[in-house]
């Protein structure tokens, strides 16, 4: 028994265990999603998160210990964001041809995301700091957290709301857009990127390469626009 305890206390200190666990959870989640024929609710991020959260709770491992291993995966978000330049460049002709539609979709999507989130939450009685934290939730996490701080929200709460928004967007986008019979991959991808940032973009790349490229642009542009619009909307409304 003490051998097992020794082994566990060794592994619990090293980043290897939780780095491996993160990859294993994702591989299982992705294979499950594939088996369920990519059913929208079988979202790989959501399933991997549930698996790992259960495992952390079962072993009473604090998140800080988990993150020491998982940070290597988390770190790759930066280089992956830079790598979005390649699909952008590959779709250059289509992007040049759709500048005006993108601009219209950007303003419509960004403003709708901020106003409807504030409107619905306020109608249900959410007030104060919690309400303000909701305003930038469609922007990518680092921008949303900065905006939240600037307008008097709670940055930690905003970070949670941003991740949930991404997962919700990745789940609802395909069923809604299929039901409406929208076949333009540019419009589909761009809308998902504006509404559901990186997690939506990850989903879009899965569905179609053009959707992925346009989703990346939507995400990048909405990061800029939310940083401008959210403080204005909040100052004007609240």
């Amino acid at each position: 028994m003490s051998d097992v305890t020794d082994l566990w206390s060794y592994l619990a200190r090293e980043p290897l265990l939780w780095l491996t666990a993160t990859l294993v959870a994702y591989v299982i989640a992705d294979a499950t999603a594939e088996k369920l024929k990519r059913h929208p609710l079988a979202n790989p991020v959501l399933m991997a998160v549930i698996l790992l959260a259960t495992l952390l709770a079962a072993t009473s491992t604090p998140y800080a210990t988990y993150f020491e291993g998982a940070q290597f995966v988390h770190f790759m978000l930066g280089p992956a964001t830079v790598a979005l330049a390649l699909p952008l460049h590959a779709n250059l002709k289509r992007i040049r041809a759709s500048l005006l539609p993108m601009l219209a979709a950007l303003f419509a999507g960004s403003l709708t995301a901020i106003l409807s989130a504030l409107g619905i939450a306020a109608a249900f009685g959410v007030r104060g700091e919690t309400l303000l934290s909701l305003a930038p939730k469609s922007a990518t996490a680092p921008v949303a957290i900065g905006v939240s701080e600037a307008i008097g929200g709670a940055p930690t709460l905003t970070a949670v709301l941003v991740i949930l928004t991404g997962i919700i967007g990745a789940i609802v986008a395909t069923p809604i857009l299929n039901a409406l019979k929208i076949t333009d991959w540019r419009a589909r991808g761009f809308a998902v990127g504006v509404a559901a940032h990186g997690i939506g973009t990850a989903h879009a790349f899965r569905v179609h390469p053009t959707a992925g490229a346009f989703s990346g642009i939507g995400m990048g542009l909405n990061a800029l626009l939310t940083a401008i619009l959210a403080p204005l909307v909040v100052a004007w409304l609240l």
């Binding site: 959870a25 992705d30 959260a53 992956a80 790349f205």
Partner: peptide, 17 residues
């Protein structure tokens, strides 16, 4: 890198729980 972009959001997602 972009084909498995979803994986990269898992650590932050676990933090949300």
């Amino acid at each position: 890198l972009l084909a498995h972009l979803s994986l990269l959001f898992v650590p932050a997602g676990v933090g949300v729980v």
